[in-house]
């Protein structure tokens, strides 16, 4: 069983935060801009300084190297970054089945990055992230720039991944309807604290 255990987490002005996320569970977090949602995800991916205990399957964050931790606890930012000219250069391996499942043709890896739409970009960023086979997905407003169709497509792909890998997911969003659709539990972040909704 995979589960993410967060105890007495403090970062910036926020905390203490205690929460447990179980295998196959999707937890939603919402709150006003600047309430510390994105920073929470960054702390969980060990991208910012923080104090407290974060552990995955009883293995504490500090027991593994930061790159290893980030492969297990994967953060998808609201806007993905691409630094090479073609898509393929960003991928160290190619999973044809996953590509098909994401609704892309076989030759997608030869596509030029500059021609991608924001919907395609976000799905491909998720694809790139999932190739690390993470146990935890941290999604930071992943569909904020997507239209209705692309949003539903994205949700479907995440749902499939949760089922196939019994992953844990934290989904941050402003869209209450979306959070109803994707998550089993919802939390509001306010004054640096999580409140069950």
């Amino acid at each position: 069983m995979k589960n993410l255990l967060i105890k007495n987490l403090h970062y910036q002005h926020c905390g203490p935060i205690d929460i447990q996320i179980n295998s196959g569970e999707c937890v939603a977090i919402f709150g006003a801009s600047g309430s510390g949602k994105s920073l929470l995800l960054r702390a969980l991916a060990d991208l910012d300084e923080h104090t407290g205990d974060i552990s995955l399957d009883d293995i504490s964050m500090n027991q593994v190297s930061a790159p290893e931790w980030r492969q297990k606890v994967a953060l998808l930012p609201a806007e993905s970054q691409w630094w090479f000219d073609t898509l393929g250069e960003h991928f160290s391996e190619i999973d044809h089945q996953l590509i098909k499942q994401f609704g892309f043709p076989e030759n997608v890896m030869s596509w030029s990055v500059s021609r991608l739409s924001s919907g395609e970009k976000q799905r491909l960023a998720l694809l790139r992230l999932l190739l690390n086979k993470p146990d935890v997905l941290l999604l930071d407003e992943p569909t904020a720039n997507l239209d209705k169709n692309n949003t539903l497509l994205f949700e479907k792909v995440v749902e499939d991944y949760i089922q196939q890998h019994s992953a844990c997911v934290i989904w941050v969003s402003h869209d209450a309807h979306q959070l109803e659709r994707v998550s089993s539990v919802q939390y509001q972040i306010e004054h640096g604290q999580l409140h069950r909704h």
Binding site: A45, L47, A66, P67, E68, R70, Q71, A74, L75, L76, P77, E79, S80, Q81, W83, R128, L129, N132
Partner: peptide, 22 residues
């Protein structure tokens, strides 16, 4: 200028050396 690209590479599990190498 490319701070967000470096962080993106870190998020994907690259080491700091890999992320800054280019």
């Amino acid at each position: 200028q490319q701070g967000s690209i470096i962080e993106q590479r870190l998020m994907l599990g690259q080491t700091s050396v890999q992320a800054i190498n280019d």
